[in-house]
Design a protein around this nucleic acid. Structure first.
Lengths: 362, 362
DNA sequence: GCGCTTTGGTTAAACGTTTAAGCAATCAAT
DNA sequence: ATTGATTGCTTAAACGTTTAACCAAAGCGC
């Protein structure tokens, strides 16, 4: 093979550089510029396919970049551009299927647009959540997508995010008062669906183990339950509505409470799957027949609802779509230079997945 | 209250600045410097509690910083210092309890030291894993903590990380060949524990649904199984050792395969909990009594093993400790200026959690 | 061969920190 | 009074990109 003098010259400069870089740090735009005897600015433009750079130069730049194993320094470009291309995500915990699925979908959408996500967990603690916000702001994220901890009532920290002009998108657990984008399912209607379903199965006395009233979504589920019960002229008994932290353990306790009633319910709608699992365990242990003696419906469609015996009917919250919408909503904000947020709700219809725990009674 | 002339002067400058910043961007070190009529360098030093700055100035700086709602720009300091204080984490998926627990512990340890983590999922795909490595390198992470995808056999991409001088720590699924730090449990011994336990329960013909042989941990589990079977003079039959992808679905298939044998086993040790769940479903559906007709042991101690009927015995992999150790191992590397990695294994003993699926037979 | 556009770059400043080096003022000791 | 150390800052460069502004050379129409 015959090389032109030019090519040989280039090769020499290159190898000189490679040797020089050998034990040194990473290659920069400057190194490429030096090899090709052009300015760093030209290299930057070449790499960004600027129209003011000749095709020849672009090719050469790409070639040298490859040979020097060049990786752009994201920090430098982020600093210069004032954008980190990082998005913070805050969830109560990642080991629930709902949140992990939402996250995965956020990630997929954002990665395609050159964004990375930083996931943080609040463990349902308000303090941890504030910490998370601080670290995310510190890391200069371009936006925050969050689902609030159960404990969170004080919204000051989220106001801080807003005041910094950083797009904030809430999902699942959100607050109207913040006046930002929100994506979630229709909790009120979901409760209606569940009650309707249980009525169709012949249930006459339906209890509800709900979440904390101060969390809007749980409050909506409670309201939906109450209205649906009224609609069907069923007994609306105070002892049939119980507030719970919705952990498995608390689900056990609250189920026991229902079983201890003089006038037991014949169905129970639990506002969270983990608590529904606790309820199921208690029922199984005490040989209460499901669904004959007690029908059971959960909320969230966690995978284990299909694994336990009997399988638990539940509400599918469309985690994938929630994640995708949250990501797209952020991207829309990111495209605009001026960020103006207002209450903008995207409410999806949920889907009732009927399983053994509430299957038709004979 | 009486203010000194100085204080009033300061207050004036401050309010001037606050007004100026009002609709503007975030406050910087320069703004603080301007308010106090000192150099930005002095501000930086004051904020870092440098001994060469007077206590008086430090106090003033802190006060103004607070009033201006100053947040240090992480990007700038990272660029200058050549450290991003970001650590990349790669896992097959986050919705397994094992990984989510490891991650949570990594996060806890690293946050305390001022590091943030970026979590990425490979979904068991080699290609996605390579992508993840690229984005992490692009984001200038200071280190990578990873558990490999099932598919991964080619180690070139991980070599790339090593060659950039970025600390690499593997856990659970790792490769000796890479000569980096590794944290995991003793898979070989765990298999011994399981077989031993099943023998004690009176099982005479123990099958193994294992993972892919090319993944070292699964290979070790198989070797452990084989050696333990030999040790107890039990039948070591080729049809009793099945390779599986260890998904729930594949667990079902492989369990069926075992049930179809002329000479059925009386126990099966499944190298993953999800596959064990599939096996359990098949056994339940076909009314094979567990553990009387078929004892069952899983691996991983996923929470659902305690939720299903009957509950599944499994191996607890000490996810919390693995996460903590991985984080600490990274921190040790980070402290040193020169990074020299070598094969350094930390092997923890696992723990067998006996549940109903293998409880003593009468 | 004059102005005018186009091409293909270059120069220099900027992003917000950190930090080595420098320097003036004060103080301590001789 | 002189030297030397200490205190408390300042100056300026650097990290690796991006980008606005500028400019030289070539091409073009007439």
């Amino acid at each position: 093979m015959i090389y032109s003098t030019k090519a040989i010259y280039l090769l020499k400069r290159l190898s000189k550089y490679i040797i020089k870089l050998g034990n040194k740090k990473k290659a920069t735009i400057k190194d490429i510029a030096n090899v090709l005897n052009i300015s760093p600015a030209a290299v930057s433009k070449a790499l960004h396919d600027d129209s003011r750079i000749s095709e020849k130069t672009k090719k050469a730049v790409r070639q040298v970049a490859k040979n020097l194993n060049y990786q752009p320094n994201h920090l430098a470009s982020a600093l210069r551009k004032g954008k980190s291309h990082l998005v913070g995500v805050i969830v109560p915990r990642t080991n629930s299927n709902f949140f992990s699925s939402v996250i995965q979908n956020i990630e997929e959408v954002l990665n395609k647009e050159g964004y990375n996500i930083i996931i943080t967990q609040s463990n349902e603690s308000y303090k941890k959540e504030c910490n998370n916000i601080d670290t995310l702001l510190f890391t200069q994220v371009d936006g925050i997508i969050a689902s609030m901890a159960n404990e969170t009532v004080d919204l000051d920290y989220y106001e801080k995010v807003k005041s910094k002009g950083i797009p904030l998108i809430l999902f699942d657990r959100g607050e109207n008062d913040l006046n930002v984008d929100y994506i979630g399912i229709n909790d009120y209607d979901s409760s209606h669906m569940i009650v309707e379903h249980l009525v169709n199965q012949g249930c006459k006395r339906i209890a509800h183990i709900g979440g904390f009233k101060h969390t809007r979504i749980y409050n909506n589920r409670i309201r939906g339950y109450v209205d649906a019960i009224k609609k069907h002229n069923l007994p609306l008994d105070n002892e049939l509505i119980i507030e719970s932290s919705l952990t498995t353990e608390d689900g056990r306790l609250k189920m026991q409470q229902l079983l201890d009633l003089n006038n037991r319910p014949d169905a129970v709608y639990v506002a969270g799957d983990y608590a529904a699992l606790g309820a199921l365990q208690v029922l199984n242990e005490q040989n209460v027949k499901i669904p004959e003696d007690m029908a059971l419906v959960g909320f969230g469609d966690e995978p284990f609802t299909g694994m336990v015996t009997p399988t638990i009917s539940s509400i599918n919250q469309h985690s994938a779509e929630i994640g995708q919408r949250a990501a797209h909503t952020f991207l829309e904000h990111a495209k605009k230079s001026v960020i103006t947020q207002s209450l903008n709700k995207q409410i999806l219809d949920a889907e009732l997945v009927v399983r053994a725990s509430s299957a038709i009674k004979k």
